[in-house]
Design a binder for these strands. Structure first.
Lengths: 308, 308
DNA sequence: ATCAGGCATCAGCTCCACTTATCAACAAGG
DNA sequence: CCTTGTTGATAAGTGGAGCTGATGCCTGAT
């Protein structure tokens, strides 16, 4: 007969119904039961509580709550209200209109992709909360995706088997130069050996660039390094030299800067979005993935159209 | 499958147990069920919610909450906490250590009886809240006792059949006078016809006094009226005249004032405590009634001893 | 490849909760 | 005073829900 053990929500709704209608019969009618059923429910509740909850005056007069009944009704109201809140919350969550998404990302995605993705998500589902964890270390993102800190994460490179991924976009490394020092076609790799270069400060991305250059026989001669992408473009525009950067980080609209492929190319980064395999995603997260696929597909088409 | 309809507390406790232990089996052990039972409970819960709450990786690895499961666990925690609060609250209420008593009273009881009663109640059960409704209209107190606004009420005079009462004390009307103008025995009624009187301002109590005086052949000649009891005593002490007041309102310790019975007496007020018959009283209210009986019994003895 | 640990499923049984029907209590009205 | 209508309680019966115990299947580890 311990209270928390045997208490049932059904009994509490019956209690409030009787308290509000004043008779067992009307309460039963409201709940879709028989009078007998409500009578037994209240009796059961009184048994678990150990004392009467209603005074039954007999005859056609309405029953009234005992002092104990009043107390329990108050609590019942609070409990049922909380349950109701849970119900609507869950409904909305399943409809995808509320929820929280923890997204793993790294710098180029953060600057080039995420703003428009999040803007669209926000426009579509304004009550979804997105949290970003930015880390340029691929392994760290993978780890947090596996242990559940992240719902989804943008990734490059290989991923373990228990991460499921969708390839989004291939981000080639391109050469930024002044239009008059390069032709309309791809830039031949040896040219870079005779040219001062502008680069990022040490970062996983920059290391990928350098390894790629060495692999095609280029020994880069950096005359300037910065962590600011737009500073790189400014340096190139000022004639300081050329730069090898991921296409994603390039503002494509500047006619004073030529964007050219390398020949032979450096292996491009393949950007994907991934999540823990066999873990259920929230509707919100699924929608985010879908939005990401759509918008990167559009971006891919524009990219192909805009580069020589 | 509507949520608020089919949700059961048992399922929620199972949910939190599994979430905390990480496996169905250990959760079952904690709850005193078999693994199969917990499995079925979670399955039932998932059926009412309409989506999985756990990801089961298979093998010896622990199950993990889905995003939906996390949400439901949060709500379950809140609901169960509320239920727990209700349980302890009810337990304490039934033990009589908490609760609220609405007490009906009128002036002479409020000043002469209630302070010590409430002091003792407070000393004994400090967490019981007492609320007073003071009204000198007997009928009003009866009405509020019947409709449930009052748990118990002090009453004088007749009460309807559906009020159950316990007689507490007989409060005689006595004469206040200077010791040297009255003897040691009861004051003969005719004496009052030759004496200026001090009385209360118009009130149900004063009307009872006047009717009583007329009934024994006294036509009162009031030279002063006040609503302040101590002012009446001061006037008598100053030799302005005599007063006829309920004994309860007299501070008995003043040697400069004689307290005498009337001969013949005015019918005294019989003070009782009453409550709605066939309504369950809270343990707190029952204790209050008991305290009142004890202390008024003591008072009665002291009263008998202290008056000629 | 076998083993162990974990959840799902099935069959069976018990017991609970509801319905139907009837009873008892009480108030109101003739 | 008796009748009538309204109310809750109760008994019996039935269907289903929930638990147990056994088994199957999946997965990771030895």
């Amino acid at each position: 007969m311990s209270l928390a053990r045997d208490l049932e929500l059904r009994h509490l709704t019956a209690l409030t119904a009787v308290a509000e209608t004043g008779t067992f019969g009307r309460a039963a009618q409201r709940l879709g039961y028989t009078q007998s059923a409500v009578s037994q429910q209240i009796a059961a509740l009184e048994r678990t509580v150990g004392a009467p909850l209603f005074d039954r005056p007999g005859g056609p007069r309405p029953v009234t709550l005992t002092p104990l009944g009043k107390i329990l009704v108050d609590h019942a109201g609070a409990v049922l209200e909380r349950v109701d809140a849970a119900a609507t919350d869950i409904e909305r969550f399943q409809a995808g209109t509320i929820g929280r998404i923890d997204i793993g990302t790294f710098q180029s995605v953060s600057t080039a992709l995420l703003p428009s993705l999040l803007a669209r998500l926000r426009a579509e589902r304004p009550n979804i909360e997105a949290r970003l964890v930015e880390d340029d270390d691929h392994e760290e993102l993978v780890r947090q995706t596996i242990d559940g800190h992240l719902d989804v994460s943008f990734l490059v490179g290989d991923t373990p088997a228990d991460i499921e991924t969708i390839d989004l976009i291939v981000d080639p490394f391109v050469v930024l130069a002044l239009p008059d020092v390069v032709g309309d076609d791809a830039v031949p790799a040896p040219l870079l050996n005779d040219t001062p270069l502008i680069g990022e400060q040490d970062s996983p991305c920059q290391r990928t660039v350098d390894q790629g250059l060495y692999a095609i026989g280029v020994t880069p001669d950096y005359v300037f390094r910065t962590s600011d992408n737009s500073a790189i473009a400014a340096m190139v525009r000022a004639g300081m030299g050329m730069a090898v950067v991921p296409l994603l980080s390039v503002e494509l609209e500047d006619p004073r800067i030529a964007v050219r492929h390398l020949d032979p190319p450096i292996p491009p980064r393949r950007i994907a979005i991934g999540w823990r395999r066999d873990r259920t995603l929230s509707p919100a997260a699924e929608r985010f993935i879908e939005i990401t696929r759509e918008m990167t597909a559009e971006l891919r088409d524009r990219q192909l159209a805009s580069i020589a």
